[in-house]
């Protein structure tokens, strides 16, 4: 059974359709990424799956249950990291974790969770003394303390410096190794590429592309660049061999040089930007 199954999901806010009929599924143990710019509908989608919002249309199943019924049994089995949320400033890391552990029937050992997110050195520090990155680790620890099967991470590294992002990525890889199913949203392409088994690119509430990072790459085209009469020309093509032959034959025939000639495969980033720019409404 799929850990998460979403079919034809729709959601509007005051006439504005934020999610316009999206379909995707997560297998157990899979890391799935919703990738897209701000306002694409990522947070709306994830918050429907977390049980915060009701949907307007479509079928949603999370661990076999309907999240908008808000069953306690479902909340026992999911862990949620929200985009913005604080905890109590004057309580220590382990005290906070003990409070949350008490909400679950079978919580993980608090010391184990502290170690898992690398907060050992700060275990008895009050939350207000933690750095931004350490607070985010605590967020993750709070999502893990119930020993969930499925973890939702909404933009887990937004606002991180590069080192903190790398650390966060290591944590997510660690969770994956524990066999957890993970749904994450991000607007960073490299994050999706680094972490996800599969990626769905979301734009204006619609999935415009879905697949493994390498499948997305497979749709990438080759770019030929050169300079002609002082201006840089860039041609994107699916048939680089033929096009290059034409260009070079003509140049040789005319006895001129294709200045600064360069042939390169466009990056995943270009593919992503193409998807966001060119897809018709």
């Amino acid at each position: 059974m799929a850990a998460v199954d979403v079919r034809g999901l729709r959601k509007s806010y005051g006439g504005q359709e934020a999610v316009r009929g999206i379909t995707f599924a997560l297998a157990e143990g899979e890391v799935f990424c919703l990738l897209g710019p701000n306002g694409a509908g990522k947070t709306t989608t994830i918050e429907i799956l977390e049980g915060y919002r009701t949907r307007d249309a479509g079928d949603v199943s999370v661990l076999g249950l309907d999240p908008q019924r808000r069953d306690r049994a479902l909340r026992e089995r999911i862990g949620v990291v929200l985009q913005h949320s604080e905890s109590w400033a004057n309580v220590t890391v382990t005290e906070t974790l003990r409070i949350f552990a008490g909400y679950y029937r079978r919580p993980r050992d608090v010391d184990e969770v502290v170690a898992l997110v690398g907060l050992d050195a700060k275990r008895d520090a009050r939350v207000k003394t933690l750095s931004g990155g350490q607070k985010r680790r605590l967020d993750l620890a709070l999502a893990l303390v119930g020993d969930p099967d499925l973890i939702f991470l909404d933009e887990p590294t937004t606002g991180f410096d590069p080192q903190a992002r790398r650390n966060a990525w290591e944590l997510v890889r660690g969770l994956r190794a524990l066999g957890k199913t993970i749904l994450l949203t991000t607007h960073y392409l490299d994050e999706a590429q680094q972490l996800a088994d599969r990626v769905a690119v979301l734009r204006d509430g619609v999935i415009v592309s879905e697949g493994t990072p390498s499948e997305l790459m497979a749709s990438s085209r080759t770019e030929i660049r050169y300079r002609e009469n002082g201006a840089v020309k860039v041609i994107a093509t699916d048939e680089p061999t033929r096009l290059l032959h034409e260009l070079t034959s003509r140049a040789v025939a005319e006895g001129r040089e294709l200045e600064e000639l360069e042939v390169r495969r466009s990056s995943l980033e270009d593919v992503y930007l193409d998807l966001l720019d060119d897809t018709p409404e």
């Binding site: 915060y52 909340r75 949620v80 929200l82 909400y103 119930g146």
Partner: peptide
């Protein structure tokens, strides 16, 4: 501060 929202996702 989002504390209530966070608690809302727990059992």
């Amino acid at each position: 501060a989002g504390v209530l929202k966070r608690i809302r996702a727990t059992p």
